[in-house]
Every structure is written in C-alpha cells, then in structure tokens.
C-alpha cells in the first residue's frame, strides 16, 4: 500500500505528537490483547492490563504464553514505528522467546531495546515483567525487516 495510507498518516501523527496510543488503537490485534503504550523516563513502555481474555490456564490462573509473546512482538513493532523512519508496520522475520517466570493474571509491562539497526534488518530485544523490570517473566528477541 502507499505511504499515503491512513495508517502512514497515523504513524506521522503519533510520532509528531509523541502519542503511541494512536497506533495501538489502530491495530485490531493490539486492541484484542488490550495493549496500551506510554512514554516513560526510560523510554517507551507498553502495558497489557490483566484481562480474562488473555488467560490460557484458568486453574492457576496464568496468561496464555502466546498472549505474552504476541504482546511482546506487538510492542517491538510499535517501538520501531515510533523510532524508525518506516511508515509501514515492519515485517517480522523471526521471533524467539524464553519464558523464565510464570505469567500470572496481572498487569504485564514490556519495554524494547534496539540492539542493532542495519540498512534493512533490525535486531530488537524485548523484556516483559509484572512487578519488577529486573524480574522478567519473558525475554525475547526479534528480527524485523523495514520496508521502504
């Protein structure tokens, strides 16, 4: 699609006004998970509020690992949209996640860190936690392709 799509306009607006929530609202899957984006002194932070809709194991109860992974991947794409030149949703190439602690039915926070930006490929690290950023529930990394 062209650079003049509605979404490209939203990306420009979100960057100019520093309002990442314009993008989370425009992506149906981000709305499904209930992802919010906020500016924080340490950088952009994403919140997936505790919600029954993201539960995979009702007896614990625990978030579905896929919801945690999906939230982290969404956060990474949004992080790139806010920080890179691209106006299109970046294409995911691969995604690798380590689940290190139980994802309880609680608010989950995510932050991203661009490890390396090449000409077309970006390597990004993603951290998810619930109570303390140093106590990750999951760590992930992904490669994205930035299209022209």
């Amino acid at each position: 699609m062209s650079q003049s799509s509605d979404f490209a306009d939203l990306v420009r607006q979100a960057r100019a006004q520093q309002r990442p929530e314009l993008l989370t609202q425009a992506i149906p899957y981000a709305r499904l998970l209930g992802i919010q984006a906020q500016q924080h002194p340490d950088g952009l932070r994403f919140l997936m509020a505790a919600s029954a809709g993201n539960v995979g194991n009702p007896t614990l109860p625990a978030l579905h690992g896929g919801a945690i992974g999906g939230c982290m991947e969404t956060a990474a794409a949004l992080h790139l949209l806010m920080h890179m030149d691209t106006l299109k949703v970046p294409k995911i190439v691969d995604f690798s996640i380590d689940y290190v602690r139980a994802g309880k039915l609680r608010d989950t926070w995510v932050s991203c860190d661009v490890v390396r930006q090449g000409r077309r490929l970006v390597n990004i690290g993603i951290n998810a936690w619930q109570t303390d950023p140093s106590e990750s529930i999951a760590r992930a990394r992904a490669h994205f392709l930035l299209s022209d």
Binding site: M1, S5, D6, F7, P28, Y29, H64, G70
Partner: peptide, 27 residues
Amino acid sequence: GEHLVGNPDTGVIHGGVLTTVLDTCCG
C-alpha cells in the same frame, strides 16, 4: 477474523497470533 489483524493496511493477521497458535498445538 478482523480481530486478528496486525497490519491495518493489508489485513494480514499479526505474528503474535501465530505465536499463540503454534505454542498451543506444540503444547
């Protein structure tokens, strides 16, 4: 379904959906 879309320009479902689907069938 529209609710799964990750790219509003193309209507392609989000990669995160694949994560859940693959995690589920492997699990």
